[in-house]
Amino acid sequence: MSQLTHISASDVSNLMEQELLKLGLSDHDAALISYMLTDTSLEGTDTHGIRLFPTYINEFVGGRANIKPNIHFMHETPVGGIVDADHANGLVASSWAMEQAIAKAKQNWLGMVVVGNSNHFGAAVNFTKMAAQDDLLGICLTNSDALVSIGDGLEAFLGTNPIAFSAPSKTGLFSADLATSQVSFSKIKQMLAANETIPDSWANIEQTSGSKHLKALQPLGGYKGQALGFLVQIMTALLANMPLDHQLSHLYEAPYDEPRKVSHFFLAINPKMFIGLEQFKHNVSLLAAEAKKVGPDVILPGELESKTKLQRLHTGIPIEPWLWDHIA
């Protein structure tokens, strides 16, 4: 299998699902995790797709993530509430939470759910798409282990703390998912491995004994991105009364038998509170069309991901030999 470079989405998803079922996950949870990781890789966001599978397996085996969690509201109102994820896999906890937010938004115009005691949840846009597919606006935030510096500091203090949003339109979904760091952690790791020059505006790099090490990423847009990172932390960790970014253990590092207590925030908004649904969807499509008139180089949120998905549905998902060894 060392020569394998591409495999179909259905084959990858089925292989992961079978491995998760062997660990004792429910049919629903195994299918959900497999589908979301595969779909994320189909869209080209490989760092948050099937490459996470070995780490998620380590979390289940070690006990960091509960195989059969008791996800429940600790406090609930008609428009919101706070959820104890019981250390579930983040994809499982977040799907449950966004479903609750969607149900509340359909009945009471808004649904806001904060989640504590969770784990890494893959790509944030997975959950905002859930809302948009139900003709709602979706917004999602999560805190994460510290990788981003603040001020003139060299050490990491904030997580990459992504923000995602989705809206329905006449022509599909209008979606975006962005970290609050200047570039991704994985990109810097790849550049270090290739011995490429890394701009100071991207990351703080330490050089010792002839080798370079990442100290911290730089925030997106300087102090403005730093403010966004703080916003996400306030809306997640502080509302959930969970650890701050710099107090979280790192996703890819041991111990795998101790909870991480990651926090998330989900918001579903019913546009019919303000405007007719069909008119709103028309307006979103009109906005996209007007933006494309600016020039051929305009790339709308979610456009690259959609193109990559069409391509990979035909060619398969590229998989490195090391990753195939963990899945097959």
Results as ranks from 00 to 15, higher is better:
Ala167Pro: 03
Tyr256Asp: 14
Phe265Pro: 00
Asp245Asn: 15
Ile198Phe: 06
Thr171Glu: 15
Gly225Leu: 11
Leu244Met: 12
Ile205Ser: 04
Lys261Thr: 14
Glu206Ala: 13
Lys261Val: 12
Leu228Pro: 00
Ile234Glu: 12
Phe266Ile: 00
Ala164Met: 08
Lys189Glu: 13
Ser211Arg: 15
Leu244Cys: 11
Ser201Asn: 14
Thr171Val: 09
Glu206Gln: 13
Glu258Val: 13
Ala193Trp: 07
Ser166Glu: 04
Ile205Trp: 07
Ser175His: 10
Leu238Tyr: 13
Ala167Tyr: 06
Lys272Trp: 06
Gly210Ser: 11
Thr180Lys: 03
Gln247Ser: 10
Ala193Tyr: 09
Asn195Leu: 07
Leu178Glu: 06
Asp200Leu: 12
Gln233His: 11
Lys261Cys: 15
Leu238Glu: 12
Gln190Ser: 14
Pro199Cys: 09
Asn270Arg: 03
Phe185Arg: 04
Lys215Arg: 15
Ser263Arg: 00
Leu251His: 08
Gly172Thr: 01
Tyr252Ser: 12
Pro271His: 09
Asp177Trp: 05
Ser184Phe: 06
Ala194Val: 05
Glu253Asn: 14
Ser201Pro: 01
Met191Thr: 06
Lys215Trp: 04
Ala194Met: 10
Ser181Thr: 04
Ser166Cys: 10
Pro162Ala: 11
His246Glu: 10
Leu231Ser: 05
Phe230Gln: 06
Ile188Lys: 01
Ala254Thr: 15
Ala193Cys: 07
Gly222Ile: 02
Leu251Val: 07
Ala203Asp: 07
Thr197Asn: 13
Lys189Ile: 09
Pro243Tyr: 03
Leu192Met: 07
Gly172Pro: 02
Phe265Arg: 00
Ala268Gly: 08
Gly210Glu: 10
Arg260Pro: 01
Gln233Gly: 05
Leu214Asp: 07
Glu206Trp: 12
Thr160Asn: 07
Ala194Phe: 07
Phe265Met: 02
Ser175Leu: 07
Thr171Asp: 15
Gly229Phe: 12
Thr236Lys: 09
Phe174Ile: 09
Leu220Cys: 09
Pro168Glu: 05
Trp202Pro: 02
Pro199Val: 07
Ala193His: 09
Leu251Glu: 05
Pro243Trp: 05
Trp202Asn: 11
Leu251Gln: 08
Leu239Thr: 10
Leu220Asn: 04
Ala268Tyr: 01
Ser211Gln: 15
Leu228Gln: 03
Ala254Glu: 12
Ala176Tyr: 14
Asn270Tyr: 03
Leu244Arg: 03
Pro168Gln: 02
Gly221Val: 02
Ala179Tyr: 05
Gly172Ile: 01
Asn241Lys: 13
Arg260Thr: 07
Met191Ala: 14
Ala268Phe: 00
Leu217His: 04
Leu238Thr: 12
Ala176Ser: 15
Gly221Ala: 10
Gln233Cys: 03
Leu220Ala: 08
Leu173Met: 12
Ala179Pro: 00
Tyr223Asn: 11
Ile205Gln: 05
Asn270Gly: 08
Tyr252Pro: 01
Thr208Lys: 15
Lys212Trp: 09
